[in-house]
Amino acid sequence: MNAHVPDTFLTLSSALTGFTEETLIFAQQTADFYAVFEGAYGADTLAQLMQSFQSAVGEGNSPQQAAAHILDETQDKTLAEAARALIVFWYLGQIKSTADPTVLHIPSANFFKQGLTWRAIQAHPPAASTQQFGYWTTPPAALSDFL
């Protein structure tokens, strides 16, 4: 499953979002964040993002430091904006549309369902809960379990 997704995309995404690679792999099973992001921002931008991240890590930076480096607008504004768009995409399933780049859209229902925002707030996307009757009467699992 998702054999085409490079490891660097997952480690980069993990550093940007604060979620584990395992969670991202589960999301990829029904919503191909990698391919859609590549389609929207171009293979070059995506390659540059991964390369920039990887070389920062190669220089001995932690993944967090490497992510901060990419997000630093004083270094490369375009790249920083693309990275931020990638965060929003993972969190909300919204990405600029190829038809109209000025608006965000949701490529398919599964992207909405897999949005990380709902996990970050210990909840579930509306209309896509996997819980059972009455779960709402008790607090959710610990935040760390959702990451």
Binding site: G18, I87, A120
Partner: peptide, 26 residues
């Protein structure tokens, strides 16, 4: 993420990512 404040919950207009983003949102 973007450093805006439409929710009024980000008056300092910070831009966050990773664990900090998760914690603030939560």
């Amino acid at each position: 993420v973007n450093g805006t404040n439409n929710s009024r919950l980000n008056p300092a207009k910070e831009q966050l990512f990773g664990a900090e983003l998760v914690e603030r949102l939560n």
